[in-house]
Each structure stands twice: as C-alpha cells, then as structure tokens.
C-alpha cells in the first residue's frame, strides 16, 4: 500500500511541549504517510500520551517549539474541533463519561461537523440512525448503547468500542489510538483490532500508541517507534516490537547507554 509517491499526512518536527510548566516532549520527530500504520511504544511517562494530546490540541498542553503539519499545513493554531474536522482523530485511553448527553445525539452532532467540512450533506436523525446501525456492526456493539448517555456506565471494553465506533463514523485521515488495547480482554481486543483493520484506508493512516506487543499481533505496523524521555529514540519495523517484548524495556536503556557512551 505504501509507495514512494504517498502523500505525507503528518509531519512533526523537533516538537517540544509542556504540561503544567513541565517539559514532557523534548524534540519529537515523526513523519506519517498515507496508508501507513505506525506503532509508538514506550514506558509509562515516556511522553506517548502527551504526544497524542498535543496533536489533538488539548488546551492544557503547551507547544514550546517545533512544528506539527497536517498535509503540509501548520495546525498548531487550530482549535481541537478544527483539527477534528479536518480529519485528526484521537481515540482516548480513558474516554470520559458525559452524563445526560445522549450517545446517539453526540455521535450525530460529531458526524455532521465532520461531514460539513467534507462538504457532504448533514444527516437528520433518521438518516443518521441508518448509518450508525451499519457502523455498529464493525465494533459488534448492541444498538442499546446509542440510547445511553455518552460512555456513562460503560465497561472499559465498551468505552473503547465506542471510540472505534466514533472513528468509523468520522472517517478520519489520521487516527491516533492511545492505548486502545489497555484494559481489554482477549475478545474485546480482537473486536477492536478487527475494527481498526477494517477501517484502514489507502489514503489514511493510523498511529497506535501501546504498551504491549499483543495489539501488534492483530494489527501489523509498518513502523515501530520507541519513545523514552520525551523523544523517539529508536525506529524499526515490527521486529523491533518483538525484540522489545522479549527483552523488555531494559533493552532500550542498554541501547541508550551504548549510544551515550559512543558520544
């Protein structure tokens, strides 16, 4: 699927970012092209989640220097909703509960805001119900989830499936899935992974942020990046993930030490 003529979707250069006045990202570089699946792995606190929130535009995270371009356009000045509308999707590690807001209505408003951007007609309640029922199959969700409040009382697995449902409806250009596999049992993992695979498009890309190799058994990444201390310190193919699984994160430390020594 990847060819040398593939368009670059996301280009991150020397990105430094902080939260609560503490610098977390110390110069991240990453290029993601059409059709690619990237995995970013690393320990807790290595900056993986921060990177995803910075790309999506969370107001608590400040970009200190560097750039993020989406299809050649700088997005740092865009509001989170504007980033979402042009096709940047963040699948949350911990999707929040929003009591009293109907999941169906939320999904409809979100879908329509993306469709508007794509110059597609907005869907009324009935049209949307048809669409959402079709997409529910991708994540094997029961339609009763639509009647409930957004994520309220959902189990961990249901919340993650609801995230993938949103991805299916918004048809993003780049999906950043932050530890979508965490807290899932084997069945839920399989459903979520197959959903992600079914949704992959030649003109779109995916970044999987994960702790473990197990998601990568279901979804084969083109690139695996290892993050430590706010930087991508190593990039390879899926073998890298397997090495990591075998020898644990200590192997990064050894590698890094070697590098430091070489300096």
């Amino acid at each position: 699927m990847i060819s040398s003529t593939s368009e670059t979707i996301l280009s991150i250069k020397d990105l430094h970012a902080s939260v609560e006045d503490q610098e977390i990202l110390h110069g991240v570089n990453l290029i993601v092209k059409e059709g690619e699946i990237h995995a970013i792995m690393g320990r807790n606190g290595s900056g993986k989640s921060t990177l995803s929130k910075v790309i999506a535009g969370h107001p608590s995270y400040k970009v200190l220097s560097g750039s993020i371009q989406f299809k050649g356009k700088d997005i740092l000045e865009l509001e989170p909703e504007e980033r979402a509308r042009i096709g940047i999707f963040l699948g949350f590690q911990y999707p929040v509960e929003i009591p009293g807001v109907s999941n169906l209505e939320f999904l409809r408003v979100a879908t329509n805001s993306r469709r508007k951007e794509l110059l597609k007609s907005e869907l009324d309640t009935f049209e949307f119900e048809d669409l959402v029922k079709e997409r529910l199959k991708i994540v094997e969700m029961n339609p009763t989830f639509l009647e409930r409040s957004v994520n309220e009382g959902f189990s961990g697995g249901e919340k993650k499936r609801n995230e993938i449902l949103q991805m299916a409806l918004l048809e993003p250009v780049i999906s950043i899935l932050d530890e979508t596999d965490s807290g899932l049992d084997i069945d839920a993992l399989r459903i979520v992974a197959s959903g992600i695979n079914r949704l992959s498009q030649p003109n779109a890309a995916t970044i999987l942020i994960t702790h473990y190799q197990r998601l990568l058994n279901e979804i084969t990444p083109d690139f695996v990046h290892i993050m430590a201390d706010g930087k991508i310190i190593k990039t390879g193919n899926k073998e890298l993930a397997i090495d990591l699984e075998k020898s644990g994160y200590d192997f990064i430390d050894t590698n890094t030490k070697e590098k430091e020594m070489a300096k």
Partner: peptide, 9 residues
C-alpha cells in the same frame, strides 16, 4: 476537550 476533539465547537 472530549466533545471538541470530535469536531463539536
């Protein structure tokens, strides 16, 4: 942020 990140202003 959750709502905004879904394109809702």
């Amino acid at each position: 942020f959750y709502l905004q990140s879904r394109g809702i202003d």
